[in-house]
Design a binder for these strands. Sequence first.
DNA 1: CAGCATCCGTGATGATACTG
DNA 2: CAGTATCATCACGGATGCTG
Lengths: 150, 150
Amino acid sequence: MLEGMDDISPGAERTAGPCAEAADAADADLAFNVFAKACPSRRTLEDVTGRWGSLTLGALYEGSLRFNELRRRVDGVSEKMLSQTLHSLERDGLVHREAQPTNPPRVDYELTSLGREVAERLLSLIHFVEDRMPSVLDAQQSYDVARGAR
Amino acid sequence: MLEGMDDISPGAERTAGPCAEAADAADADLAFNVFAKACPSRRTLEDVTGRWGSLTLGALYEGSLRFNELRRRVDGVSEKMLSQTLHSLERDGLVHREAQPTNPPRVDYELTSLGREVAERLLSLIHFVEDRMPSVLDAQQSYDVARGAR
DNA sequence: CAGCATCCGTGATGATACTG
DNA sequence: CAGTATCATCACGGATGCTG
């Protein structure tokens, strides 16, 4: 798989742009690159794939939900984390917050169209993982046995 | 009166199955459900979507890599975290570790076929996020302005 | 109901040093 | 090169109490 290209530029730090590529030229003209430490896309990816971010986006894919509905759907999330997660996602433009000045207050969260596209891809991953859990569990057991035996 | 197994004792956590659905009956016959706190699939999803897990899987999609190659590709990861991440992924059956007893040692990491399928979906998400970063950055700025203004 | 402020523990994370 | 071990830190995240 590796031809003469051998490795990367010798000890060169590419801090040129925020998202300079690390390795070879496969990136072509990519502007953003999550593999680069300082690239803003990494942060966003973390918001999206984070512990609660992924589940929140996944839950909202089915439709608009209120704060406590969401809280119940995303089993185990605390108020604080959900609130924080929603702020991040809203800031990234993935979730829209709709507050109604009624009493008691009612706030609905829903995906933006961008958020919806993200959630689609996320759910594809989530469903795949759920689907293959038997294999994963199997692998885990083998790994643990082989390791504990030694 | 039927099977007395349907106990939903007050305040009791539904630890019936590992992945019992939280709310209504929408789950049908789902075996694994990341939205359930105690479901093993949640842990696996975290391995996959985790800060370093996602980048490691993404990096390995292009082909087999050695430890330090990987370390350079996943900009910012520490030895410890990479090692730990690789162990988790190997345990989940997503990454295969091939050690050659040479001197100096040479160890190659590559995706299993399962890992490859996971990485595909992950990369779809990653590329989408990278692609839409302009929109995200834009949204962030709007959000910050609206917030700071107040 | 929807959320923020605060306190505070624990575990993830990173730097360093050491081994095979 | 490919890790493991150890230690210090600090942000993540939970519990509680309060507000609108």
